[in-house]
Design a protein around this nucleic acid. Structure first.
Lengths: 355, 355
DNA sequence: CATTGTAATGAAAGCGCTTTTAAATTATAA
DNA sequence: TTATAATTTAAAAGCGCTTTCATTACAATG
């Protein structure tokens, strides 16, 4: 049905080896023959079968990207960045969401391996990948979470100090009673952020207990619902700190739903993407995570591994230090004369202006 | 390096044909042998090579989805829907953005064809696909735009009457001077919407000329910039009608930037996704486009074509009639006693409540 | 003229699998 | 025991390509 290299060879009156050489611009082919082959190709509307080529070459020009949920805005921007770079290198992306379900993650990973993708970028569900039997030779980079077993590269953010910084930011605006909304503690990132929070609590001698921590779920809706529910029963804290993009979005949504005004009624800070939260009014103070940068580094790291074509000897860990971008979500003026903790003053390097 | 079926066969002391039968649960294999083979598979951590299988079977279990931009919220939701259904059927998605560039679209499509995907879902840039030489046998469905050449299936919205309905909605709230923000007229959908607008203008005897139409671009930022620029120079109309999701988002962004209040200063309506615009305050009156539904129909149509495995004889065209969901973005009360045009009363079947 | 070198082409193997066909084994009946 | 059938396994072809290696054609050289 679809023409093969054989048909082209027959039409051009040459051997299939010669056609292959024309297509791949390899070896010696005289100009006269080359043109005849090219003509036959366009006449037959021949498209080389990448499957056959992949089988022969053991390269698929395919990158698998396995994430929590492509409809998560932050995640999607990472994918978009990877896609941009992959396009340049003529790679295509197989993208899968695991929707925070271990079973889906396992299945998707299995499919990617069977499809012999050249590399994998993974934002895992949190369980380690040991039982998934990913071979060491597979180029693979973790994103936003560390590899527990330290077998593979990862690109992550500095979480602990940044997290402490956000607490101190709230503190510096005079707030004392907080609610912390975080994600699943299976993720190394979330655990680190909590460590930072507890450190700050201890340093600042805050009166905060376990009741002020809320694991709100994995979807925007469930988070918003949890927050609404919490606020309804526990009343308003002075400040909310949402430890990740989704938690922050869910929190804002909940406040919106409940007509709670920021910063008049409550202060909020969080980790997130400035393009999303910077344009809000009032703009939200965030530890800025740039998904484009994450995608770029992830792609570059992966690409290098693919090119190297040998097992990972030394897994690399890229740590991006987020800057705290001041918004107006904590009230306009920090308490004057308040000691700004050292760590905080380092983090605040940049202020976001909405055009 | 990676174990092959041969290694498994050797380890289990059987032929590769037998191993294949075990993997595919086909033919007769005695229980004793089956267990031996299964053991060898897990011992070797063998993963069948989908490439080799694809070559043999001429099926890849891969669906290509070529869209304007995966980071477009509306588009992304379509992808998400397709992904959900594809997962059930054990298909993977190769997703590509063409970013509204003809060259990228062509290249991506070429890659998908070479990779022998089992089917393609495409939201084209608007140029017709004639010169892309997609073979008729390829299962392919257009989304949000018609196939000019009527070779392939498509799932689209009813645009003309719905569009007229939105104009009439603005009219019924007492507004007379409008700005129409639309996308590229290469898209059949956009053209149809403009036809509807002109019909309504003529029916309602509105005094509106070409200056009130704005082709604002293809990215959120460019649209927002165009709108800001227009409003700065031309002043405020009474109502803005943005003909698609992106135009609506850009418009809202621009109004936000300029501190123009809705509906106090201006009324807005548009085509869009209720999940996005329904939660805004004030909620925006939209002709509701449900990306999940679009994705579902697109996938089902495609899947049927893939299963049928024969050339398209009768291309189908699925037309979804959007309902106009009333928000508060045009002012609360339509002018009483105003004749509600027939078409409008049909469209308004549903009202959106935010929980 | 024979020899060597160079450029261009073709023949053939093989990538890892599925699937058809043939062969081997076992069970059943004569 | 032998013939026949039923069941199970092995052998081999081939999917469409790349790539190595051998071959051919031709010009240049001694």
């Amino acid at each position: 049905m679809t023409p093969t290299i054989k048909d082209v060879a027959a039409a051009a009156g040459v051997s299939i080896g010669t056609v292959s050489k024309v297509i791949n611009k390899s070896g010696f082919v005289s100009e006269r023959i080359r043109e005849r082959v090219l003509l036959a190709i366009s006449l037959l509307n021949y498209k080389p079968n990448a499957i056959a080529r992949s089988l022969k070459q053991s390269k698929t020009k395919l990158i698998g990207i396995l994430v929590d949920d492509i409809s998560n805005l932050y995640t999607m921007k990472i994918i978009k960045a990877v896609e941009n770079f992959a396009y340049e290198m003529e790679y295509n992306l197989i993208s899968c969401s695991h929707n925070n379900q271990a079973e889906q993650e396992k299945k998707a990973l299995q499919w990617l391996l069977e499809k012999r993708v050249d590399g994998i970028i993974i934002m895992p569900i949190g369980s380690d990948l040991d039982d998934l039997n990913v071979p060491n030779i597979m180029p693979l980079v973790f994103v936003e979470t560390k590899d527990k077993n330290e077998r593979f590269d990862s690109v992550i953010h500095e979480n602990m100090h940044t997290s402490a910084g956000l607490v101190e930011h709230l503190y510096s605006h005079g707030h004392r009673k907080f609610l912390f909304i975080h994600g699943s503690l299976r993720h190394s990132a979330e655990k680190e952020k909590l460590v930072g929070i507890r450190q700050a609590i201890s340093n600042l001698k805050l009166d905060i207990d376990e009741q002020n921590f809320l694991d709100a779920g994995t979807t925007l809706d469930s988070i918003a619902a949890s927050v609404r529910n919490y606020l309804k029963h526990e009343g308003l804290p002075q400040g909310i700190y949402a430890t990740n993009h989704l938690a922050l979005a869910g929190t804002i949504r909940a406040l919106w739903d409940m007509d709670i005004r920021v910063p008049d009624d409550i202060a909020i800070v969080g980790f997130g993407d400035i393009d999303t939260y910077g344009i809000l009014k009032p703009s939200v103070t965030v530890a800025k995570q740039d998904p484009y940068e994450v995608g770029k580094i992830a792609y570059e790291t992966l690409f290098e591994r693919i090119e190297m074509d040998k097992p990972i000897s030394e897994p690399k860990e890229f740590v991006i230090s987020p800057k705290i971008i001041l918004g107006a979500s904590c009230g306009c003026h920090p308490i004057v004369n308040h000691r700004v903790p050292e760590v905080l003053s380092h983090l605040i390097n940049e202020t976001f202006h909405s055009e």
